[in-house]
Structure formats: C-alpha cells, structure tokens
Design a binder for these strands. Structure first.
Length: 673
DNA sequence: CAGTGAGCGAGCTTCCGCTTGACTT
C-alpha cells in the first residue's frame, strides 16, 4: 500500500511526527544539508554566472538513498524541512536529486511548513501546502557562494603573506576582531582613581549603610573626589557636621514590578549555562541535544525539550496552555497572569523557524526526571524548565524605599532598600546579575520621616576604574548575536575555530588573542576592512532578504560583491610585502653590531631577530617567552633574549657546555646533546 | 618531544550552515 513520504531535517523530529501522522505516512530525515560545495577552489565559477558545483555531502549518501527508495513508491512527497532560508535550500536539493532520477513527474510534490511540532500544526501544514520558493533558495545560494568565495580567496592570501594553514571568513574574522579590539582597549586603558563615601548607620540595633549622593550642594559624581587627601578632608567635615546622628529627611516608597525574561533561545541558553553552570558553549549544545533526542522514561523514549538551535522566543499556544496549567497547580493562581506573556524576538536576522527552547511537557518537573538523567543533563534541564516556567509567570512585586539623610546643609546620604512582597516568577527562576554590575539593594530597617539614626562611622573607599573585561564564551556569543554574525547552529563552532587556529586562547575562561590572531586581524582590518566590518553581514542580510522577497536578483548581487573583492585580493597580493603583513616591528639598533632589532611572527611563533635575511651573515634569532607579545615587547626585553645561549664552560673532555631557552623551557647542552 | 627561523619548492591548508554518525571483534 503506497504511502505518502514526508521529509524533515532532524531524525528526532521525524520520529515524533511519524507518531502523529500514523500509517498513511512514512517520515524520513535528511540529517541537515545533503549537498554542499566541496572544499576546493572552483566550486563556484564567477566567470560563469557563479555556477555552483554541488556534491553529495560526506555521510549523506545513506540518507539520500533511503529517501530515493521511499520516493519511488510514494504516492506523494511532502518537503517539510525547516521554514527558513537553509531549510528551503535543503528541500530544493532533495527535489533536484529526485528530479535527476526522474521521480518528480509521476507524483505530486508539496512544500509544507510548520513552526511547532504539534499534531494540529502538522495537519494544518499538510492541508495548506505551497510551492518551493526559488527566491528563498536563491538567497541561500547567494549566501553560500559568497561565504565560499570570501573564505577561499582570503585564506590563501594569509598563507602567502603570513603563515600557512591560516583562515579568514565572513563570520570568524569579525569575531576575531572583537577579541583583538577588546584587548587593545584593555592595553590602552588608564585607570582613574576615585573615592566613595559611605555612612555606617544603625537604627535600634539594625545596621545599614548609606551612600553620599550630594556634596557642597551639588550632586556627588564619580570623580569628584580623586585623591586621598581630599577624601580625608570630606570625611572629617561630614563627621563634624553629623555629630554622631543623622535624621531621615525624606522617605520615598514605591512599588515596583519586575518582569520575567523570555524563554531561552540558543544564544541565551549558552550564556546562562556558562554563567550559572560554567558549561562551555559546546558542552551546552551537546547536553541539550541529548535532552532533545530524549531519554527512556518508563520504557518509552521521550524528548524532554524542544529544538535547541533556535532564534525565536515564541511559544506555541499548546505550550502556553501547558505552562500556565503547571504554574497554577504548582504555585497557585496568583502566579498565573491574566493573559500569557508575549515576547518579541529582538535578535537581528532572526529566521524564527522553531519555537523557543522549552520543556516538551511542563508537568515533567526537574524532580520527576532527575533519575533518568546524568548530572549535566539534569542541571541543564532544570535551567530550561525554570526559565520557561518563569517566562509565563506573573511579575515579582517589590516595595522599594529610598531614604535621604541630610548631613549639614550641603551634603546628603541616601540608603536604598527593597523588599519582595510577591515573588512571582522569582519563585521559579533566579535572575543572574549581568557582568560588571553588582546588585546592592538590600533590606533596610523600617524608617520614617524625621527618625533619628545613629552614625557609627563614615568610610572613604578608594577605587579605580577598570578596563572592559575580556570576552568570555558567553559574552562573545552575545556580541555576535547582537551584530547578527553567525547562527544558532554555529556559535559553538566559531569559538572552536578561533581556538583551533590559535588566534585566541582561553585564560580563566576568557579569550586572549595570540600574536597570530593579532597579526591576522591587523592584516584584514588594514586591507580588507569592508569585509570584516561588523556591518558587512547586516548589509548582506538586507540584500538577501530582498532576494528572498523577489525584489532583487541573486547573480547581480554576487557580481557586485565579487568584482571589487577579487580586484582587491589581486592588488594586495602584489602591493603588501610579507614584512608588512607580518607586522614586523623595528625596536632599535643592536649596540654590538649596529643592526636592526626586530620582532615578528615566524613559522614557529613570534620571535626577535637581529639583522636582516639579506645581510651577509645569517641573522640571529630568539623566540619570545610566554607572556611577551609582538605589539608590546620593549627593546630592552628583546635584547635580553639574545643573552642566551651562553657558554658556561667545558666538560673535562673539552666539549662546550652552554645554556639556552627552547620551546619547552630552559635547558643545558654539551657537545651535540 | 627538540632546541627551528635562508634557500629549492611539491603538496597541503581554507569558508558557513544544516544535521548526527558509531561497520567488524
């Protein structure tokens, strides 16, 4: 009996949908893209209208074979890949392969789309099929071709001018740039001194503190006191004015609402898992994948979360009802808002092919599934479950109070406090404090206008402004998402590319650019600024959108990019010397030989050099020590490197003994050992 | 481990975005 064939991208999704559709359907997975450009030059031919030579992807053959076989006997074929640009292209590739085999004439082909996996949504999709959108497919092809052309023309230029094996690309290069630019900011940063003044107060045995907010009749600003002497004077004057007591002159009370955050998408999940669980982006994705694919619960395999690679904060109506029901029964009706909370997707270039990340069933509380999960899975599931629950709960209510204490006529202290009167969503989910900010609102004793409080002391605290922090995996993903660089499925792999190329290293979970990374970044920024610009992807996305709406053609779009791009590549190949590309720094003249002392990036890493390779004598070399950087090493430190190798003496047999520093640290050698 | 860095120059490297692989014994 002939069946209808329905094709999706993910096998876990195929299993679920198969259950919903029953006997009439066979549901197969493509396992993502099935054809791609090979990793070779010439896969895109700019001289022939950017003709693209696709090849079956490694490992796709068995999946394609299965699809072909099923298509031969199917009575209809439904292409149900994701509803975004990439998904449309996958459907088209499947169609093309089946067309080449002569399988598209006999039975109808339908393109169907749904953004939530529920029986209702899938049935509705099947009842309302559409045609393949070649405009959307062509937008994808333009994206694909451009990425290939950028990567496979810039990378070889780097091999020629800097070092073999390096890489550049539309996405990895701006990401590298963020890391390098941040490091430069940190190096250029001059800390500024400032002082804070705080009063330690007490009311009926309850201590609290208040900050100085007004001094000399004016708002007290961060840098108003910038030295110890002045801080001391101010403190003495205030102590004198107060005389051991302060009076609460003004008390302002306010009720504040605090709203929950939207449910997770890929980027926010990676950020929160990094902050709260200290998971790497890769670890988070691997663990989420396991939760998505499901675990055996009482003998039945069950997916625990929805799809984890998504850029949409939207929840299906079924999910909203499910969460609200669970919130009501677990926390009580007060915690269920009158209407569901709605969130807007704010990330640039979002394609919203999937729902937000949420538990497939809110009733599966973390406690209930704990014994089926390993520790990492449990902690990630709990995070996802709590965040999704919280996103549909009522706001938290806080009573805030601000009390001002005048100290003499010209100065004022202020104490802030807040009390949670109704926890709302906080009952399910703790909000983490963003980087660099400190939460300092605490509880205050009950204070009313006119109350006198004891002054214990006034403290002057010295502070220095701090440079911006280096990027963590979490903050880098956040920044990439803000610029629209990279996609949910690639954030984690971009990070591993930067590490694999040794463009950056992780030091205490923060990215530090290497010399290689800095040299590559500088080369690209100096000579290809347009293509590594943060705005490049954003502009490209606008143009691709126009293509997908049928308002622009993809080939002219590529032509407009390609002609100036390849011209620039050719030009730079001629005009930029290797020395310039490698960022050779001349530090000074060697006092002994009078030759130039330089630092540069060599084949085996950064090194210092006396003399030039065109000199009659071979130049002398010395590798930089760990921690020394091409951009920052001083002349003196570089000369110091040449004090080794040093002869210590000779062995009784007359062999020379010397000491040197090699790749693996200092060592002593004698003779040829 | 190996303690280099020129020169000769073959053959190699490289993009982004979708999705999970698992042979035998």
């Amino acid at each position: 009996m002939a069946k209808k064939l329905l094709i999706v991208e993910s096998p876990a999704k195929a299993t679920t949908i198969n259950r919903y559709l029953g006997e009439d359907f066979e549901v197969l997975a493509s396992y993502g893209h099935i054809r791609d450009l090979p990793s070779k030059d010439g896969a895109v031919d700019p001289d022939n209208d950017f003709a693209m030579r696709y090849e079956l992807s490694e490992g796709s053959k068995k999946h394609v074979d299965k699809i072909v076989k099923a298509a031969r006997k199917a009575e209809a074929v439904y292409l149900a890949t994701d509803l975004d640009r990439e998904g449309e292209a996958i459907s088209w590739h499947i169609y093309e392969i089946l067309r080449e085999k002569g399988l598209t004439d006999k039975v109808p082909y339908y393109r169907v789309e749904f953004s939530e996996i529920t029986p209702r949504a899938i049935k509705a999709a099947i009842d309302n099929p559409r045609k393949l959108s070649m405009d959307l497919v062509n937008a994808q092809q333009a994206r694909r071709a451009l990425d290939h052309l950028v990567g496979f023309n810039l990378s070889p230029l780097l091999w020629k001018k800097i070092k073999t094996g390096l890489s550049a690309g539309r996405v990895q290069s701006p990401a590298l740039r963020m890391i390098v630019e941040r490091e430069r900011e940190i190096e250029a940063f001059n800390p500024r001194e400032y002082w804070s003044i705080e009063a330690d107060l007490e009311k009926e045995g309850n201590p609290f503190s208040a900050k100085l907010v007004r001094l000399d009749g004016d708002t007290f600003r961060q840098f108003d006191i910038d030295n110890e002497k002045r801080a001391h004077e101010v403190r003495q004057a205030l102590l004198g004015n107060a005389n051991g007591k302060l009076v609460a002159n003004r008390v302002k009370r306010k009720e504040r609402k605090r709203r929950p955050a939207p449910p997770f998408i890929t980027s926010t999940l990676q950020q929160d898992a990094s902050r709260k669980l200290r998971f790497s982006a890769q670890n988070t994705m691997r663990t989420a994948q396991a939760l998505y694919e499901g675990v055996a619960i009482d003998g039945v395999n069950q997916g625990l979360i929805t799809y984890m690679r998504t850029d949409s904060v939207a929840l299906s109506n079924d999910a909203l009802a499910d969460l609200r029901k669970q919130i009501g029964s677990q926390f009580g009706d007060r915690y269920v808002p009158k209407k569901p909370n709605f969130y807007k997707t704010k990330s640039k270039n979002a394609q919203e092919a999937h729902e937000a990340i949420r538990p497939t069933s809110a009733a599966l509380t973390p406690d209930k599934v704990r014994r089926y999960l390993d520790d990492r899975q449990f902690r990630l599931y709990e995070l996802i479950w709590r965040r999704a629950m919280a996103s549909q709960m009522a706001p938290a209510l806080l009573d805030t109070v601000a009390v001002e204490f005048d100290c003499g006529d010209d100065a004022t202290f202020r104490a802030n406090g807040s009390v949670i009167t109704f926890p709302g969503f906080l009952a399910a989910y703790e909000v983490s404090v963003p980087e660099g900010k400190q939460e300092q609102e605490s509880q205050l004793p009950d204070i009313n206008e006119g109350d006198r409080v004891q002054l214990q002391d006034i403290r002057a605290g010295q502070h220095f402004t701090e440079p911006p922090p280096r990027y963590s995996e979490a903050s880098l993903v956040k920044a990439m998402e803000e610029y629209g660089i990279g996609r949910p499925s690639t954030y984690a792999s971009i990070i591993s590319t930067l590490l694999r190329r040794h463009y950056a290293e992780l030091d205490r979970r923060r990215f530090v650019p290497t010399d290689t990374g800095r040299v590559v970044e500088r080369f690209l920024e100096n000579h290809f600024s347009h293509y590594v610009d943060y705005e490049f992807t954003a502009k490209l996305e606008d143009e691709l959108d126009a293509v997908s709406r049928g308002e622009a053609e993809w080939i002219p779009l590529l032509r407009e990019f390609w002609d100036p791009f390849i011209k620039k590549v050719k030009e730079k190949e001629e005009t930029v010397s290797r020395d310039e590309a490698k960022n050779v720094r001349v530090l000074g003249k060697d006092p002994k030989s009078g030759k130039d002392v330089t630092v540069r990036l060599g084949r085996y890493g950064p090194h210092a050099q006396i003399g030039h390779r065109d000199d009659e004598d071979k130049p002398k070399f010395a590798g930089l020590r760990p921690g020394q950087k091409i951009d920052t090493i001083t002349f003196e430190d570089a000369l110091e490197l040449f004090r080794l190798p040093r002869k210590l003496g000779s062995t009784p047999e007359g062999e020379a003994v010397s000491v040197n520093v090699g790749r693996y640290g200092p060592y002593v050698r004698y003779g040829d050992k």
